[in-house]
Design a protein around this nucleic acid. Sequence first.
DNA 1: CGCGTGCCTTCCGTTGAGCGGAAGCGTGCT
DNA 2: AGCACGCTTCCGCTCAACGGAAGGCACGCG
Lengths: 253, 253
Amino acid sequence: MGVAGKVIAILESFAHVPGAAGSRGLTLTEICRRAGLPLATGHRLVGELTGGGLLERAPDGTYRVGIRLWRIAAQTPAAAGLRELALPYMEDLYEVTHENVQLAVLREDRALYIERLRGPRSVPIVTRVGAELPLHATGVGKVLLAFADEVVQDKVMGAGLAAHTRHTIVDPGRLRAELAEVRRQGYAVTREEMTLGSCSVAAPIRDGRCRVVAAISLVARNSTADPRRLAPAVLTAARALSRDVTASWARDA
Amino acid sequence: MGVAGKVIAILESFAHVPGAAGSRGLTLTEICRRAGLPLATGHRLVGELTGGGLLERAPDGTYRVGIRLWRIAAQTPAAAGLRELALPYMEDLYEVTHENVQLAVLREDRALYIERLRGPRSVPIVTRVGAELPLHATGVGKVLLAFADEVVQDKVMGAGLAAHTRHTIVDPGRLRAELAEVRRQGYAVTREEMTLGSCSVAAPIRDGRCRVVAAISLVARNSTADPRRLAPAVLTAARALSRDVTASWARDA
DNA sequence: CGCGTGCCTTCCGTTGAGCGGAAGCGTGCT
DNA sequence: AGCACGCTTCCGCTCAACGGAAGGCACGCG
C-alpha cells in the first residue's frame, strides 16, 4: 500500500464517526487503528493532511475533517447535483407537513442519505446526511430495493435481514411480498421498522428512462401520523422532482 | 513535496470547478495543471484516488469528486454541526418569506456559504454551498466583516474592494461607515452590490460569548422586496439560532 | 511520591515506492 | 495525411517514506 492508499485509509477512518454530526473527533491512535497504520506512519501523514487543511486538530488533540475538504466535497455532482434539484421539492414537503423530509440514493446495498430537512417539532430521527442505512428497514430503502435489479435484491436477502426493532421485517419471503406491494402501489411505508416511534412514507425519483435514481420520504411520529394520508404529498413531490431530474439530466447529456 | 502533499493538491484542484454544482468534471491534464504536477505523476495518483473512490471518472473521461469523499466530508463539524443547528431556523425563514435563505461563516477574508435554501420562485442567486464570496459585497459578508477583528477589516480594505456591479461599495471609507451602521443597527443590507437584481438582509449568529460565528441572510428580488421589511424576520431567526448555538456548544464543552 | 496507562512525538538508517521524461496510442479536426 | 490534444505506459534511478524504538507528557491510582 502506497502513500495515496494510506491517505485514503486515513480519510476513510472519519466516515463513521458517531455523535451528533461528527462533533467528536478522532485521536491519532484511533485513526491509526481504523486505517490499519502504524502510529508513526499515521502521525506523519495526519500531520501533512492537517498542514494541508484537509484535517483539523481541535484543542483537545482530536482530529476532525477540515473545512477545506468539505469545500472540495461540496462540489460532488453525485450529491450536490441531485440535492440542488431536490431541495425546493423537499422544502415544499416540509412546509406542507412539517415532518422530516429525506432524500436518499442506492449505494451498493445501502441507502445513502444525501439530504435531510427537519424542524424543531419533527420526530427525532437517526439519519444524518452522509449516513447509510439498511434498505429493508427504511422507507427510502424499500423503494430503492423494490426497483433495484435482482442482483441487489438477492444480495440483501442473502446477507440476512437484521432486526432493528421488533417490527423490522426479517423474513425474506415477507420482504419480497412487501417489495412487490411497493412496486404495485408506487410507494413504500415503514412502521417502526427502523426506529421505534417513527413511521415513514417514501416514493421513487425517476430519470428520463424511468429508472429509479433516488427516493424521497417523510418520516413522522408513528403515534400521530397516518402514512397513507402522507403518501399523496410524497408521491406528488416525487413526480414533480422526477420531471425536473429528467429535464436537467437531458440538458446535461 | 511528498505524495500526501500531491494528493492534497489534486483534491484542491476540484475546489473551484465552475458550472452548476460542479457538474463539469476536470480532465487529467487540467488537474495536473492546477495541481502543478507532471502528467505521469498526476495520472498515477489520480488513478489511485479513483480506485479508492475519492474521485470518480465519468464516461466522458473527466474526473469528479466521488461520493465517498462526500460521505467523509459530510461529517465535518465545522459545516455539518452549524448547518444542523441552523436548518430548522432557515426553514422557518424560507417558509415565511419564500426567499433565498443563506448561512455563511467567515473564512480568512471571505464569506464561506455552508447552506442555502431556495424555492422555485426565488430570485436566482450565484452562491453555491461551499462557495466563497467577497465580504464587502454580500449581506452575510458585511455582517461577518462588521464584527470581525480589525486585522481582517484592514486586510479586506487593503486588498482593494472589487466592483461586482456598479452598486458595489468600492470606497474603503464608505465601507467602514457602512460597517459601523451594521454594528449599530444589528443587521446588514445590500442592494444589488453583488448581483444586479438582488438585495439581501443579513444578521449575525452569536455564540455564548457574543462572538459572531456566522451570518444568516435572505436574498430577494430587488425590484419587489423591501430589505427593511425583511429585517425583523432575519433578526428573529438569528437570535433564536444564536440561543441554540450557545446551548449546543456549551453542552459540547 | 512512584508507577502504570494512554496518547502521542521524535529519531534515523534502510530501501523500495515514487518519480517523470519519453515514447506511444487513440480520437477528432482540417 | 498531418497535427493537436489528452491521455497511457514504461522503467532505471533515487530519495521520500518507513516504522520500531525511545522518550515525553498528562492523568489517575495506591
